[in-house]
């Protein structure tokens, strides 16, 4: 029977703790990522119910603080929090006192004074969530994308989706695969790596799980230094694409095509886009991911976006379960914090 409450025992007891904050994939390591993927499978099951809601975070308050525009990430986090029965407060810069000149720090302190348990922060400045975490006295902080730095939950849902597809092909449960399915997997990340928070998180996540990551981009869109990055770099997409198990495309922002990073969008598409011609070089089982929003005709041809192995819609669906897992693992095992009793949260960094 589907119910409003999850039956006792069907939410897995956490095996590894994560937190207190999720600012970077580096905070998780292999075991943290594995635990999130494991718990997310249970929540994916919840989502398939008639009434996809559990009381796990009842009484908890989750605030989304988005200082930069976003559609899918905010909706995904808010949906995840609501399915866990948390109260959700939504804060966006266009309607807030930030417009009146309030500083980030004051905003954070104000929001926290309302008894918030978790702040989900998106900001155009790299590191802003780390600073919010330093200022926060009792809240947990989740990075929902900060500048060019990281977008941890995007990388987690990419990994979750890839494992799901691999499991289906083998007719097994994704949970049974553990993280062994990533061992030696060849992942190609293509596009504007330099300005991509998705790429930075994806490199860390795939690497932690044992995959081999190759970056493909024009030189001007690679980070100035790759010292310490566990990656290989290829310049010829045609040569690299046939060997890839996963091709991870990144959005090219239109302003990057204005001439200073690449000569034109047309040339970018011809050399580094997943065109129909180039898609023919893909292996039959190669999975194509894209964090969205897609710019069809630039980094991905419209027809390619519709191929069976292109899992963009599935990524969006899985985003909710993965974010439920993150919220649950950060919050679900704690007693709610009393506003007058600051919880000891170790400083980050």
């Amino acid at each position: 029977m589907s119910g409003t409450a999850l039956e006792a025992g069907s939410i897995p007891a956490p095996r590894a703790s994560i937190g207190p904050h999720l600012l970077s994939i580096a905070d998780l390591g292999h075991d943290g990522i594995a635990e999130i993927l494991r718990v997310a499978e249970a929540f994916a099951e919840v989502e398939r119910r008639a009434i996809p809601k559990v009381p796990t975070l009842r009484g908890r308050v989750v605030a989304t603080l988005f200082f930069e525009e976003s559609t899918r990430t905010r909706l995904s986090f808010e949906t995840a929090a609501k399915r866990l029965s948390a109260d959700v407060l939504s804060f966006s810069v266009s309607t807030s006192s930030v417009k009146k000149g309030e500083s980030l720090r004051d905003t954070v302190e104000t929001v926290e004074a309302m008894g918030i348990d978790t702040m989900i922060v998106r900001h155009s400045s790299a590191g802003a969530p780390a600073q919010v975490a330093r200022w926060a006295k009792r809240s947990r902080v989740i990075n929902a994308g900060d500048g060019w730095h990281e977008h941890p939950t995007q990388a987690l849902l990419d990994c979750f989706t890839v494992r799901q597809v691999l499991a289906e092909r083998q007719g097994r449960d994704p949970g049974e695969l553990g993280t062994g399915c990533f061992e030696g997997l060849s992942v190609l990340i293509v596009g504007d790596i330099r300005h991509s928070r998705v790429a930075r998180s994806a490199v860390l996540a795939y690497n932690a799980l044992g995959a081999r990551v190759t970056l493909v981009a024009p030189g001007s869109l690679l980070p100035p230094s790759l010292e310490g990055w566990p990656v290989e770099v290829a310049t010829d997409l045609d040569a690299a694409i046939g060997r890839a198990d996963v091709v991870s495309l990144l959005r090219l922002q239109a302003e990057r095509g204005s001439g200073s990073f690449v000569p034109s969008l047309r040339e970018y598409t011809a050399e580094w886009g997943l065109t129909n011609e180039r898609a023919r070089l893909l292996g039959p089982d190669t999975i194509v991911t894209h964090p969205g929003p897609m710019v069809r005709g630039v980094e991905i041809a419209a027809d390619v976006a519709e191929l069976a192995n292109t899992v963009v819609t599935r990524q969006v669906t899985n985003g909710v379960a993965v974010r439920m897992a993150v919220l649950f693992l950060l919050l679900g095992t704690d007693p709610p914090a009393a506003p007058d009793e600051p919880r000891k949260v170790p400083a980050h960094g």
Partner: peptide
Amino acid sequence: HEGAWSSRLGLPGMP
């Protein structure tokens, strides 16, 4: 400074 840390941290660097 533009280098290993700016690249990792996602901050624009000056070379």
